[in-house]
Simulated scan of single mutants.
Amino acid sequence: MTENEQGRTLDAGALKALAHPLRVRIYDILSERGAQTASTLAKLIGETSGATSYHLRALAAQDLIREVPDRGTSRERWWERPKGRINLPGPDQALTPAGRAAAQIVTSEFFALRHQSLMEYLNRPVSETPEGWADAGLVTTTMLDLTPVQMEEMKDELTRVVDEAVARYAGQEGAPGTRRVTMRAEIFDLPTSGASKEES
Rank of each mutant, 00 (worst) to 15 (best):
T48N: 00
S196L: 08
E153W: 04
G99T: 06
I105H: 03
E120M: 09
M119Q: 13
M1R: 10
I29H: 02
M143E: 12
E76D: 14
W133D: 12
E157G: 05
A60T: 06
A94I: 11
S74N: 11
E3W: 02
M154Y: 11
T107L: 12
N123E: 11
G50V: 06
N87M: 11
A185Y: 04
Q62L: 02
R100T: 12
D135F: 10
P191S: 03
M154H: 11
L59S: 00
V68Q: 02
A103P: 10
P21K: 07
L41T: 08
D92A: 15
R168G: 01
S31T: 14
I45P: 02
G84L: 03
Q93H: 07
I45D: 01
S193V: 15
T37P: 06
L10Q: 02
E173R: 14
Y169K: 07
R160I: 00
G7K: 02
T178R: 03
Q93M: 15
E32P: 00
I65A: 00
A38P: 09
A98F: 04
L18Q: 00
A94L: 14
T147A: 01
W79H: 02
L59V: 08
G34S: 05
G177E: 00
A38D: 10
V68M: 06
K83G: 14
Q116N: 10
V24T: 05
L64H: 04
T73A: 05
L56K: 01
E76C: 08
Q150R: 06
R57G: 14
D145R: 15
A42P: 10
G72P: 05
W79M: 01
I187V: 15
M143C: 01
M183V: 15
E199G: 07
A38S: 13
E199P: 03
G132Y: 01
T142C: 14
W133E: 14
M151N: 10
K83Q: 14
P130F: 01
A165M: 03
L44T: 11
R25S: 12
